[in-house]
Design a binder for these strands. Structure first.
Lengths: 192, 192
DNA sequence: CTAATTATAGGTCAATCGTCCTAATGCGAG
DNA sequence: CTCGCATTAGGACGATTGACCTATAATTAG
């Protein structure tokens, strides 16, 4: 029954390594070394590299849902919840500075490799997208809800890319402020 | 003297392949096959893979400067010039849909690999950044010029990432429209 | 306790990676 | 024409890749 434990450790290590160095750059051997396990044992749990990737994506989805649940518990106002998402980039700044947004960079790599798991990776974004859409609906923006959700996702992605490229924390802070103010104006009923 | 010709063909092919499949996924052999050249000949022109990358980046910088020069010749109004940049994503949509923004995805990969050429790749963005900054200065936004330039770069990057991830052309068009309207408001003297 | 199942270790495989080398060309200057 | 340099071809290298296999150790079931 310790199989599940080993499996989880593999997924956890793979998750980290894929975030730090990218999927293609992450090898069987590297993961096995981190988990301190033989490559043979590794193969017992995952037959192919893509299977690990899918397991990692599934775990990221689970973590994402869990994080969203926390936001919902911490704040009842939709606008405050959305700001939680907006501010992730500042909370995780040290890591984002060096390795970018975990979701965005993975999707970029999947797109570039025309990888079969492209759709699954996109699914992480979809969780955020649907949730943001729901929050905007609660704010009374029925029709534009999805468009606004995509706008927030897109805005954050751009900031993550440019801030990590230029290692520009100040820029990230400025943009987060702008996003919050934009959201406030949206809440008080002005046009976008 | 045909050495320069072969060298240019190598750079051209490498440029394409790196854009399509990413730097790490692009091998010596693949490039050599495309150029129809032996790997030995390849080594005569470029000793290491990083040398090819740097040559590709340099060419992209040259192409970037050339593109900017065209914009300056086509439009005298800074706002119209900036719109040229904003609209690239729609002009190159078929390719961006499948492979993302050439600059952004390369910088992302360099960041992820902690690659020595990270700074050089960032230089392509810097060309756009400085040029956009100059255009905003011409529009009378002296102090905020650089911040506005980064804002435009960031906005475009986000749209490119999300649009390519979700293969969403409609979203890209919407965002480009928003960016143009935002720019118009900025031009007519309203606040950002 | 024993048998069966689960889990781990470690070796092997062909393919590919970046790199390097030498031999054979092409070609222009004298 | 010939000498010498520039260019090309193609093989070989050690290392690493994802994948696979078998033998052993650990655990569980009866």
């Amino acid at each position: 029954m310790s199989a599940g434990k080993t499996r989880n450790e593999i997924i956890k290590a793979a998750d980290q390594l894929i975030y730090l160095n990218g999927y293609e750059h992450t090898s069987f051997a590297t993961i096995a070394n981190v988990v301190k396990i033989s490559r043979g044992n590794f193969y017992y749990h995952f037959k192919t590299k893509d299977q690990i990737l899918n397991a990692v994506i599934e775990q990221r989805k689970t973590n994402t849902r869990s994080m969203i649940r926390q936001w919902e518990q911490q704040h009842t106002k939709p606008a405050e919840r959305i700001k939680c998402y907006i501010k992730i980039i500042l909370q995780n700044w040290p890591k984002i500075k060096q390795h970018g947004c975990p979701v965005g960079t993975l999707c970029n790599e999947m797109t570039k490799l025309s990888h079969p798991s492209q759709k699954q990776a996109r699914g992480i974004f979809t969780i955020f997208r649907k949730w943001l859409r729901d929050q905007f609906r609660l704010l009374g923006h029925e029709e534009q809800a999805d468009q606004l959700a995509m706008h927030v996702l897109s805005w954050s992605q751009g900031v993550a890319t440019m801030a990590s490229t230029f290692k520009a924390q100040q820029f990230a802070e400025n943009e987060v402020d702008q996003m919050c103010r934009w959201l406030d104006e949206l809440t008080t009923g002005k046009s976008i």
